[in-house]
């Protein structure tokens, strides 16, 4: 979904998102004018610019639209494709939620470095650095109350 279609979808989503919330606020949640005045001002700015962008995305040459964006670099191998990178990111939150911050992040680091076939030395370095700043740095030295234990062990 690159180029013109992508630009149209993004501008359209922005327009619909803002418009939907403003209409819900006014007619479903029945916010008083004092409460909804500023969101309406900000929303109107967003809606006008999004509508303008929508029209512009249909008219301007694709090369101009492409120049405005910053493409994400392609991976150095098929295992580092954009879809897989986003899938790895999506795995972080469930891991730290279920296993606690320390174990969750260590598991993520180990799985990620193993998947990319890094050497054992490199894997150990990554795990040691994560352990160092999460447990020693934040938890022990700075005294930040991190949920070190897995969530299921805290009940």
């Amino acid at each position: 979904m690159k180029g013109r279609i992508g630009n149209i979808v993004i501008a359209g989503t922005l327009l619909l998102f803002t418009l939907a919330f403003l209409l819900l606020g006014r007619f479903y949640w029945h916010y008083r004018p004092t409460v909804i005045m500023f969101p309406e001002l900000a929303g109107t700015l967003t809606i006008i610019t999004a509508a303008w962008l929508l029209i512009r995305s249909c008219l301007v040459p694709v090369t101009v639209l492409a120049e405005e964006g910053e493409p994400i670099s392609p991976g150095d191998n098929p295992r580092a494709g954009l879809g897989r990178r986003l899938a790895w990111l999506a795995g972080v939150f469930p891991l730290v939620y279920v296993f606690g911050i320390l174990i969750g992040l260590l598991l993520f680091g180990l799985a990620y470095t193993t998947y990319h076939r890094l050497s054992w030395i490199q894997r150990l370095i990554v795990l040691a650095v994560i352990f160092g700043f999460v447990y020693v740095g934040f938890y022990l030295l700075l005294g930040v109350p991190l949920p070190i234990r897995p969530l299921w062990m805290r009940f």
Binding site: L105, F108, Q122, V126, F133, V134
Partner: peptide
């Protein structure tokens, strides 16, 4: 990048 990414994710989460 493959070495730095998991460390930075950890930093961001913490």
């Amino acid at each position: 990048g493959h070495l730095l990414a998991p460390i930075l994710i950890g930093l961001v989460v913490v």
